[in-house]
Amino acid sequence: MQNQPFPFLNEQVVERIFASGELTREDRQRIQSMLLDESIGEHELSLVEKVMSGVVNGLLDVLN
């Protein structure tokens, strides 16, 4: 059994992302893992959309 290196996105993680104004590499990896999971639900997709909207609208800086 393979462990996921990053837990999936949740409200607390999204709040931290917006509070810091930064999307880290770890955050991006977490989102990628979520999108690759076939069992992702509507709630998780809405969290991803919220973060991506923050990037597109210039509210979040994407860090390397």
Rank of each mutant, 00 (worst) to 15 (best):
L23R: 05
G54I: 00
R16G: 10
S53C: 13
Q29V: 00
F6Y: 15
N3E: 15
S46Y: 10
N64S: 10
E38F: 06
L59G: 00
V48W: 05
P7T: 15
S20K: 09
G58S: 08
L47H: 06
E15R: 10
I17H: 03
N57M: 11
G54V: 01
L9M: 07
V51R: 09
D27N: 07
L45S: 11
N64A: 12
R25H: 08
L9R: 02
Q12L: 11
S39D: 15
R25S: 10
N3A: 15
Q29E: 09
G54E: 03
I40L: 09
E15N: 08
N3Q: 15
M34I: 10
E44V: 02
L59Y: 00
D27E: 03
F6W: 14
E26G: 09
Q12K: 14
S39T: 15
E49P: 00
N10F: 04
Q2I: 14
L63Y: 01
I17V: 12
R25P: 00
R30S: 09
L60P: 01
E15G: 03
N10L: 05
F6C: 07
S53K: 15
L47A: 11
L9P: 01
E42A: 13
V14M: 07
E49L: 10
E38W: 06
L9A: 05
V51A: 10
G41A: 11
V13R: 12
Q2W: 09
A19Q: 09
V62N: 05
E11N: 14
P5D: 12
E49K: 11
F8P: 08
P5C: 05
E42N: 12
Q32R: 07
V48E: 03
E26A: 13
I17W: 02
N10W: 02
L60C: 04
E26Y: 06
G21Q: 03
V13I: 15
L60K: 03
L63C: 09
R25Y: 08
E38T: 11
S20M: 05
R16M: 03
S33Q: 13
Q2R: 13
L23W: 01
